[in-house]
Design a protein around this nucleic acid. Structure first.
Lengths: 143, 143
DNA sequence: CCGGATCCGTTTCGATACTG
DNA sequence: CAGTATCGAAACGGATCCGG
């Protein structure tokens, strides 16, 4: 792995990695939206440019947050799958979702407190584990 | 507030806000390093340029993540203080700290699992509340 | 001295077109 | 499908200046 982000302070190092819109977007899409192929990411609403996508996917791989595999029946296709280190970002993404809900409601009071977030808050740990286990079942087995 | 970050998907909107190195760095410094004045931020290790700092502080204020106040005895000085919406980012920053510790150890196995992170994990909620309450006592009273 | 604003060279981003 | 190449646009960041 490159030493690009090597820093004496791990916190700062992590901010260098995750304080980047596309890194968060890609991890979110992998974890929560079942995106695995290059095409999946380019077709998303966020419309990431192919050159940026390529750069970020390689960077995530260097950082061992994701890894490349092939689907068993199609050697030509490439799947981008989260590693355990990548899956360990789930709690962070869940907190991001909770905060974004709060932030949205701050500026749009007409939006009611949905049941979805209440459910998450009532059993955060279970919710996180569900996401991780579900992801593992879908993709980790392929490797 | 501007509609700069208005988006149908609150998650994406939050990523636009927090998927920015400086936004995370500034919030971290306010919350965990007791930085409050413009000078405090410029003197930090991260060495943010003054023009960037100014831009980001104004953006954070528009988003109602922080707010400006004056210390009671010095009307010329300006304090940048987190709002409740800003304080609500504490769980996210704690998860970032936990992940960054994991990430660091991934690439530097010689580093042992310190007791610090173990303590945090054993009582995450209490740890988060401590940070928030401590911050409120220090700064919120001033307003 | 503090809290910026302005200027300007450098870097990075991002849309599109193109390729194996 | 999974990327490069190119090139204009935007952001960054260092230096400097300015008002209170």
């Amino acid at each position: 792995m490159t030493q690009k982000f090597r820093c004496d302070c791990p916190f700062t190092s992590a901010i260098d990695i995750l304080g980047d819109k596309w890194m968060l977007v890609i991890v979110k899409q992998m974890l929560l939206e079942n995106k695995t192929t290059f095409k999946d990411f380019t077709e998303s609403d966020e419309a990431i440019a192919t050159n940026i996508l390529s750069t970020k996917l390689n960077l995530l791989e260097e950082l061992e947050i994701n890894t490349k595999t092939h689907p068993p029946n199609n050697i030509n296709s490439i799947l981008f799958v989260l590693t355990e280190l990548g899956l360990a970002l789930t709690p962070l993404l869940v907190e991001l979702a909770i905060w974004s809900d709060k932030h949205l409601r701050e500026f749009h009071p007409e939006i009611q407190d949905g049941d979805g977030l209440k459910f998450i808050r009532s059993n955060k740990e279970g919710f996180i584990n569900n996401i991780i286990n579900s992801y593992r079942q879908k993709w980790t087995a392929i490797q």
